[in-house]
């Protein structure tokens, strides 16, 4: 399974951009969720959130390895050797974890969008990506069930949980669109069928799935579109997280792990 056999240089550059966006999403949400380890609302949630975070970091690792193979780079360097501004995750993942309802809302938005994206990637013309996405998709089923369960529990439960959830959705809604922010080399990706559909179509699919579920809960979630810089905006929250997850690697820059 070698990545370089079928791709010409422009397709390789385009796929590198795509892989980095997906890998950074999984990597950053994995680290945010790992912040709940030890302090989740109950023991079972501690285990669940930690397990999901570990899955996401594992997905990020596999995606970074594929990216490293394409660009003749090193997966650890890509993950831990970049400045905060070089990350390309969606703006949704710029926020700190805040409270439990906020983390539930973010995870629900992310998982629903990730499901649409993984379905597209698992039919990619680039076989190594299609195979990896297909495998990830089976695991993500558990994440989606977990997010749906908490979505229902908070939205159908006591007023406080419902209000916190609604507030979180209102805060995150615009930034959630950015999971489908257009990629610079998207035309090449779609042309080579590395990406089966343009991001705007994937966005429309996702939006039509989630808006009917959110409308009864949160007012003011009007249809929104991704923006061209949706994967380039960084926040102080993320700069703090970046400092945390690069701390060990920075402590011994020439170390072999």
């Amino acid at each position: 399974m070698t990545a370089e056999v079928t791709l010409d240089a422009p397709a390789r550059a385009a796929e590198a951009e795509l892989l980095m966006s997906v890998a950074d999403d999984e990597f950053v949400i994995g680290f945010w969720d790992s912040e709940w380890t030890g302090i989740a609302p109950m023991l079972e949630e501690d285990v669940a959130t930690s397990s999901i975070a570990q899955d996401e970091l594992g997905h990020a690792k596999a995606l970074y390895e594929l990216l490293a193979e394409l660009t003749d780079d090193d997966a650890d360097r890509i993950a831990f050797g970049r400045d905060a501004d070089a990350f390309r995750h969606a703006a949704l993942l710029n926020h700190a974890r805040v409270d439990w309802a906020f983390s539930v809302a973010r995870r629900w938005l992310y998982e629903t969008a990730d499901a649409v994206r993984l379905a597209a990637l698992s039919s990619s013309s680039h076989e190594p990506l299609a195979l990896l996405a297909g495998k990830m998709r089976r695991e993500e089923t558990y994440h989606r069930l977990h997010a749906d369960t908490w979505f229902r529990r908070l939205s159908d439960g006591a007023p406080e949980g419902r209000e916190r959830l609604a507030t979180a959705f209102e805060c995150l809604w615009a930034d959630a669109q950015e999971i489908f922010a257009p990629l610079e080399r998207e035309e090449t990706l779609v042309g080579a069928k590395i990406l089966s559909q343009p991001m705007r179509e994937l966005h429309a699919t996702w939006s039509s799935q989630v808006r009917p579920m959110l409308e009864p809960l949160a007012e003011g979630l009007t249809p929104a579109e991704p923006s061209p810089d949706g994967r380039r905006r960084r926040t102080d929250d993320f700069r703090w997280l970046h400092g945390e997850f690069t701390m060990v690697a920075r402590s011994e820059e020439d170390a072999t792990w």
């Binding site: 079972e44 285990v47 669940a48 397990s51 999901i52 570990q54 899955d55 695991e139 558990y142 069930l145």
Partner: peptide, 13 residues
């Protein structure tokens, strides 16, 4: 099922 996640990624409790 208590929880679909366990001490390793592949186990549920």
């Amino acid at each position: 099922m208590e929880i679909p996640f366990g001490p390793t990624l592949c186990r549920a409790i």
